[in-house]
């Protein structure tokens, strides 16, 4: 269902580099012939991901692999340094001012930190009502009505509109963040670790809120988490990311049942089994390499139990391995 028709949002060969600035000490050392460390981080490297209207796509990967960077690019907060972002088929880099605003508002981001993502100097009512007021989506008393409506929709008592964020609980704050996003009638929510900072009991409630909103508003989601069990609960399709690259992509059920990429297999083995007596993680063997100097070839080869000789210098491409399933591994060529 997902890969037919024009997707609502498509990332095509999207990349993002960050330049690390060289500080004074390094500049001095460079005078004595010590070359400074590699300066560029390739946070996202040629990622392809299309999301169809109404779909929930999960994005999974270890911390630092570039999920938040990808999320910011998708939401239009951060421009990619390579590749194209298409919203309903159109390159967002070429949009005029009005179309750009429409794209910006229709794709809203929900942030991980429910505290840092709310302006501490604004009341809940202002936080939620500012955008509709500024963009003329509501005027006068209609602003307060709109605020009350979305607050109700996310399960917040509208009487909290006069509170400041520090007077709310973590779960309430995250609901304010969701209400703020809904205030501009988005079609697409990019949720970057949106439940990771919440207590376990609240986490389930907020996840269910996302599912309700999907049903009631027909929302589309890019749902990012380092936690596979959360993604399994909510996603139709899943993409697995490792050191800036998408290494596997496919329908959630199939991907969880028969992971094809060795990294996905390792991640799935890492989910704690409650049935086991010892509740211990079986970690993916080895350290996550520094994104500053990723291993050549397949980034995963130093940790991969199946690594071949060519894995060390040849980057595997993301290729279809079964209907709807894509994988970036040299082992796929041998089958």
């Amino acid at each position: 269902m997902s890969e037919t028709g024009t997707p609502i949002l498509a990332l095509e060969a999207v990349g993002r580099r960050f330049e690390r600035s060289i500080d004074m000490a390094e500049r001095l050392l460079a005078l004595f012939g010590r070359r400074p460390d590699r300066r560029t981080v390739h946070a996202v490297d040629s990622a392809d991901l299309a999301v169809a209207e109404g779909e929930v796509v999960g994005l999974v990967g270890e911390s630092g692999c570039g999920k938040s960077t990808l999320a910011r690019i998708a939401a239009g907060i951060l421009p990619p340094s390579a590749g194209t972002v298409r919203f309903r088929g159109r390159d967002v880099a070429g949009l005029g001012q009005t179309e750009r605003l429409a794209y910006t508002l229709q794709v809203q981001m929900i942030f991980q930190d429910p505290f840092a993502s709310l302006n501490p100097r604004q009341t809940v009512g202002t936080i939620i009502g500012e955008a509709p007021r500024v963009h003329g989506l509501a005027t006068g008393p209609a602003v307060a009505e709109r605020v009350a409506r979305v607050m109700h929709e996310v399960g917040l008592d509208p009487s909290l509109a006069g509170r400041f964020p520090h007077q709310l609980s973590g779960g309430q704050r995250q609901r304010v963040g969701i209400a703020r996003a809904l205030s501009v009638d988005p079609r697409f929510l990019v949720c970057d670790e949106a439940v990771s900072a919440l207590d376990v009991s609240v986490r389930a409630q907020v996840l269910n809120l996302f599912l309700d909103l999907r049903r009631d508003r027909g929302l589309t989601y890019l749902f990012i988490s380092h936690d596979l069990s959360v993604v399994r609960h909510i996603a139709d399709r899943v993409a697995i990311m490792y050191l800036g690259r998408i290494v596997e992509r496919g329908p959630a059920a199939a991907l969880f049942a028969t992971p094809t990429h060795p990294y996905t297999q390792a991640l799935l083995a890492e989910i704690p089994r409650l049935s086991r007596r010892r509740r211990r993680f079986t970690p993916v063997a080895g350290e996550i390499p520094s994104p500053l100097r990723p291993p050549p070839g397949c980034h995963f080869h130093p940790r991969c139990p199946h690594a071949l000789a060519r894995c060390r210098d040849e980057t595997p491409a993301l290729r279809p391995v079964a209907p709807g399933r894509w994988s970036a591994c040299h082992l796929n060529d041998q089958a």
């Binding site: 910011r72 907060i77 993502s117 302006n119 501490p120 500012e130 955008a131 963009h135 703020r180």
Partner: peptide, 21 residues
């Protein structure tokens, strides 16, 4: 901080973000 990114995401002008946020 993320609330500034959120303000950008809500399509506010740079002037508004600087003065109001």
């Amino acid at each position: 901080k993320e609330y500034i990114e959120a303000a950008q995401n809500l399509g506010f002008s740079r002037l508004r973000i600087m003065l109001v946020h």
